[in-house]
């Protein structure tokens, strides 16, 4: 690893404590060679209102998605993007952002698809940094471009396609959307279609664990024991399980993917980014409605 891990004691219980850094650690390490801090938000302009000094911005809509096909950028585009942000293959990249690090986790997950080794989240995200009165600046950041190798995206280890989900039936699925989305209750007003799908409900057998339950009120991750109570005791996951998480377009579930993989130590966790906007609109996909998970279809 390019930069030493954060030794903060409260991370020690997690399966991979090296994947988290504290706001204090970030403040102390700003400017360390080999470290790039990346802000990723839901709001495309929030970074411009003030960001951590030296942090670069990556926008999920305009930079991580392919502009035409519903997919992520390819290896070549990723190399160009990372290089332009001053990120080389061995750089330690610390992500942070708004909304409990929702979009930061998404950006981190996309980096993982390209096998970028040292990616970490700043626990508590933008809100905690701000809450603690740490410095924010509107000074423009102009990273020195570096070379980043063209790496083929790995779409099998951490990402699931619709067919993978079908083949996965019988093994645990986690639906991280809100309860209303899970049950299939309509939330949008007729005539004003939201970013939606043609059918409501959830993938049969999926357990409902809204993503933000993993976060404490101060936007940091809950301690391991509390996370285990949610994901193991309540949702029924067991050690060694092969898990797929999904939401609406795969953003909220990348947060849960991070929790399961790095905080709880599940080795085989995939994020189904097609998620409900694909499943709920595709023809003949099995759907369960109401508060019960329902049975996995026999294959």
């Amino acid at each position: 690893m390019a930069v030493d891990a954060d030794p903060t004691a409260r991370f020690a219980d997690f399966a991979h404590p090296e994947r988290l850094v504290s706001t204090q650690w970030v403040e102390e390490n700003l400017g360390t060679p080999g470290l790039v801090v990346v802000e990723s938000n839901e709001d495309v302009l929030l970074y411009e209102t003030g960001h951590i000094p030296g942090a670069v911005k990556i926008d999920w809509h305009t930079e991580l998605n392919d502009p035409v096909e519903r997919d992520f950028l390819d290896g070549e585009a990723f190399a160009k993007l990372a290089g332009s942000k001053g990120i080389s293959r061995d750089t330690t990249v610390v992500f942070y952002g708004d909304k409990n690090n929702w979009w930061a986790a998404y950006a981190l997950w996309v980096f993982t698809l390209f096998g970028h080794e040292d990616v970490r989240l700043m626990d508590g995200g933008r809100a905690k940094w701000q809450e603690e009165g740490r410095a924010l600046t509107t000074d423009p950041v102009t990273p020195v471009p570096v070379d980043y190798p063209v790496v083929e995206r790995d779409d099998s280890t951490n990402r699931a396609w619709r067919d993978d989900v079908v083949a996965h039936f019988g093994k645990p699925l986690i639906d991280v959307r809100s309860t209303e989305e899970y049950t299939g209750e309509r939330t949008e007003i007729p005539g004003y279609p939201a970013e939606g799908s043609l059918r409501g409900g959830h993938i049969p057998s999926a357990a409902s664990v809204p993503w933000a339950r993993a976060a404490a009120p101060d936007a940091t991750f809950k301690p391991r024991a509390e996370l285990e109570a949610i994901y193991l005791d309540e949702a029924g996951l067991a050690e060694g399980d092969d898990v797929i998480a999904y939401c609406r377009i795969g953003e909220r579930s990348s947060h849960t993917w991070f929790v399961l993989k790095y905080l709880l130590g599940f080795e085989n966790v995939r994020n189904y980014d097609g998620s409900w906007t694909e499943w709920g609109s595709a023809v003949r996909m099995p759907i369960a409605t109401g508060p019960e998970p329902g049975e996995a279809p026999r294959r």
Partner: peptide, 18 residues
């Protein structure tokens, strides 16, 4: 649309519609 993405622009269209 290109600068902020089509999805986000939908929010503004909705605001106008409402």
């Amino acid at each position: 649309t290109e600068a902020v993405s089509p999805l986000r622009i939908r929010g503004m269209s909705a605001m106008l519609g409402r």
